[in-house]
């Protein structure tokens, strides 16, 4: 099978871009759902890295892909809890805006 050579730097750069994109979104978007989605983006940046290293790292092996699978599972659990909390919050506050989470402060 002919190998397609992709320089590892470009994959890592993709990871950095995804991470920063997710971070920027998580810190600026007003809707909690979008914020949660952006957090997923950050996790996926890590996944990209893991998979990239699994193939192109210093000593390539399958551990990275296994790690990525675990991460995806865990992230799914996390987002499920997140959405459940959002639902509970919406019931009480009639809002899904981040800025309305302002009961606990100072």
């Amino acid at each position: 099978m002919p190998t397609l050579s992709i320089p590892p730097q470009s994959l890592l750069t993709l990871g950095v871009i995804l991470f920063c994109l997710g971070l920027f979104g998580a810190l600026t978007r007003r809707n909690i759902i979008i914020v949660l989605v952006c957090v997923e983006l950050m996790l996926n940046a890590a996944n990209i890295n893991l998979v990239a290293f699994s193939r192109l790292g210093a000593s390539p092996n399958l551990d990275g892909q296994v790690f990525a699978l675990f991460t995806i599972t865990v992230a799914a659990a996390e987002i499920a809890v997140g959405l459940a909390l959002l639902l509970a919050f919406f019931r009480l506050r009639q809002s899904s805006e981040v800025k309305d989470m302002n009961q606990n402060k100072l």
Binding site: L27, T28, V35, V98, M101, N102, Q103, K105, L106
Partner: peptide, 17 residues
């Protein structure tokens, strides 16, 4: 410093990052 605890999640995130 207490007034940094605005209760705004995204302020917290921004400070952390």
């Amino acid at each position: 410093l207490k007034y940094t605890q605005t209760g705004q999640l995204q302020t917290y995130g921004a400070a952390t990052m």
